[in-house]
Amino acid sequence: MLTLTNVHKAFGSNKVLKGVNLTVEKGDVVAILGPSGSGKTTLLRCINFLERADKGRLKLGEIDISLKHAHSKDVLAVRRKTAFVFQNYSLFRNKTVLQNVTEGLIIARKIPKDEAIKIAKEQLDRVGLSDKYDAYPNQLSGGQQQRVGIARAVAVKPDVILFDEPTSALDPELVGEVLCVIKALAKSGITMVIVTHEMSFARDVASKVVFMDEGVALASGTPKEIFVDCQEPRVKQFLARFNNEIDYNI
């Protein structure tokens, strides 16, 4: 359903992406792993055109466009079929929780206001924030803000939701509540691409894992193929510490 081919992106002389390919099928939960600076976040931002890639193609449903030369109309079309959950939540600071969710429905998708509010309330209830409709973002904890961020993304019924390290800005004790919400979403069959450092989460929830390093997708496969069977030395080295931790835990 979502296919990226040969994506390149450089910031000045720093080549962040060097020909990444990625395929996501409907219902997939794809976890992208890899060390910091491997280009995971940049790849995600390129899909949503928050960054313009230097090269590459994007296929999403019947849309098939160049990542570099896409017309603004196509960009908008892609954005309206996808949604993004940000590392630092990025809620609209001038809108209430409810307005944060309805904004994309009313303005971008032209859904009547009453209906938009109904949808928004449903989604907020789903992430456990039914008592916070009229709060402003800075009155919420990080975990609550991120749950609003997720509700905002889900509400627009996107074909695919892109998560950019959704828990890495959170205090450790707040990570659980957000992961819980994402897990529930995964079970409901929404297609998702998640950049994350939460290994056990990736292992348990993802249907497919992609390992990125130095701007390329080094390995991809089912969680078992990556976590257990993968022979790629860089992947093994990266996972070694994590696997050790699991051993210790056991």
């Binding site: 309206r80 993004f84 630092n88 600071r93 971008a108 998708r109």
Partner: peptide, 28 residues
């Protein structure tokens, strides 16, 4: 800057994002 990103990501056009999200905050 993330306010603009967030607005674009939910499908607002750059102009809509500017008027509805950036401008009210900048005015304040």
């Amino acid at each position: 800057k993330d306010q603009m990103d967030a607005a674009l990501s939910i499908g607002l056009t750059p102009l809509q994002a500017f008027i509805r999200i950036i401008l009210p905050q900048a005015f304040y």
